[in-house]
Amino acid sequence: MQRGRLRAALDVTDPEPLPADHPLWRLEGVLIAPHVGGATGAMRPRIAHLVRRQIDHLRAGEDPENVVLGG
């Protein structure tokens, strides 16, 4: 990125949100978008379906889907 050979569009960063003084803000060729890439009309039914599956997993004594542990 710093050599100008790569370009990037970022929807997720670490940390999030990026502090105002973070070096990514100053890099040429970097587009930083708010983390709302999935905010469409199709999202609500998907979210409802996922929540229903998660509840079903928990009621069955199973682990929920998409669990991220650690950091």
Rank of each mutant, 00 (worst) to 15 (best):
E28N: 14
T13Q: 03
R5L: 14
Q54N: 14
P19C: 06
V12Y: 02
P34C: 05
H49A: 15
H35C: 03
L50E: 10
P17E: 05
T40S: 15
R7T: 04
A9R: 13
I47N: 04
H35T: 01
A9K: 11
P23W: 08
A42Q: 14
A39F: 15
R52N: 07
P17D: 04
R7V: 00
L27Q: 09
A9S: 10
V51I: 12
A9V: 15
P15E: 01
D14Y: 08
R52E: 05
L18C: 09
H49W: 13
G29T: 01
G38Y: 12
L6N: 11
D21P: 09
T40H: 11
G41C: 04
A33N: 08
R7M: 00
D11E: 07
L10F: 09
V36A: 12
V51R: 11
I47A: 10
D21C: 10
R46D: 05
H57F: 06
Q54G: 05
R7I: 00
L10S: 09
T13E: 01
D14T: 08
Q54K: 13
L10D: 05
A42K: 14
A33H: 11
R3G: 13
I47M: 12
H35Y: 06
R52Y: 07
L31M: 12
R53K: 14
G37V: 04
T13F: 01
P45E: 00
A33W: 03
G4S: 09
R5I: 05
P23T: 01
I32D: 00
P17Y: 04
A33D: 00
G29V: 01
P15V: 02
A39E: 07
E16K: 08
H57C: 12
V36W: 06
L24T: 08
G38H: 12
V36Q: 07
P34A: 06
